[in-house]
Simulated assay, not measured.
Amino acid sequence: MKIDLSDKTALVTGSTVGIGYAIALGLARTGATVVVNGRKQEAVDKAVKAIEDAVPGARVTGVPADLGTGEGAAALVAAVPAPDILVNNVGIFGPKDFFEVPDEEWARFFEVNVMSGVRLSRAYALGMAERGWGRILFIASESALNIPVEMIHYGFTKTAQLAVSRGLAKRLAGTGVTVNAILPGPTLSEGVADMLKDEIARTGQSLEEAGAAFVKAHRPSSIIQRAASVEEVANMAVYVCSKEASATTGSALRVDGGLVDTIA
């Protein structure tokens, strides 16, 4: 299968590092015009340059905007008024006991992880429908189904993303716009590397080894028994954004290494 998105524009939020960057890079390789987003101009410029270096002739631009606020979302919409593909990837996470998470932290996680995608989908979906084609993708998590006891506030936002994704897919029925969610499991992103840095320093393990040890200790139902790479998650995302995925919508697609113990 050769995925060709050379006539499409894709906006990937939170795409200066990690899974978001890998998705932006993958979409650039399909020929899509890619818009990189992050909070800081320096990080955006660095990611744009990296994609240009990796994909000769890539059409890639960048827009800094803090999508944890309505103002930031409005600024991004003003700069990118009509993308064909929207990947709602931006998100935050971090372990903290339920009894230590204040109201402000619950609200911050909800604004960044949920409302960023709500605002952008609301701004772009009807235009996609009028044009008869579009792809909206939410990067959720296996934590949406397997709520982590150490990150209940995070898991709740990922479950909310599944509700928004499924509901919006039904709202856009018959328009040519698909809406889906991807549920990665533990993935070797920069955020996970930062979470494991103390363990790596203590044991002398590589990131991959520390990731596998974390999975075996904290996600023992994993079938692959390791953390995924960002590229493995991006591969699924690129396919879901493709023209070839036209019959896939309203779905929660797992890239979790078999961690969630269900056949559905």
Rank of each mutant, 00 (worst) to 15 (best):
E42A: 14
I139R: 10
A75R: 07
E104M: 12
K158P: 02
E199M: 08
N89S: 02
S189I: 12
F156W: 15
V90N: 10
V36K: 00
D261H: 06
V60F: 07
I19C: 08
G62K: 00
A82D: 14
A47D: 03
G167T: 10
L172K: 09
G62D: 04
K2T: 12
E105G: 10
I3H: 05
T16D: 13
A247M: 13
W106F: 05
T159S: 09
G127V: 06
I3L: 13
A54R: 07
N89L: 09
G68V: 11
L27K: 08
G211A: 00
F214K: 02
F214H: 02
W133F: 04
L253P: 00
K170D: 14
V77H: 06
L67Q: 05
M115Q: 08
V230C: 13
A50F: 00
G258K: 03
I139F: 09
E130S: 13
M128Y: 02
G185N: 03
L145V: 11
T69F: 08
T69Y: 10
A160P: 15
F98R: 07
A245Y: 11
N146Q: 15
S165T: 13
A210F: 06
E244D: 15
G211F: 00
G211S: 00
F93E: 02
N89V: 06
N113H: 05
A74C: 04
T9D: 01
D97V: 09
L11Y: 10
A213L: 03
G38H: 04
D261N: 04
Y239W: 14
I182G: 05
G191M: 12
A252K: 02
A169G: 01
Y124D: 00
R122F: 05
A140G: 10
N88V: 02
A169N: 01
A75M: 02
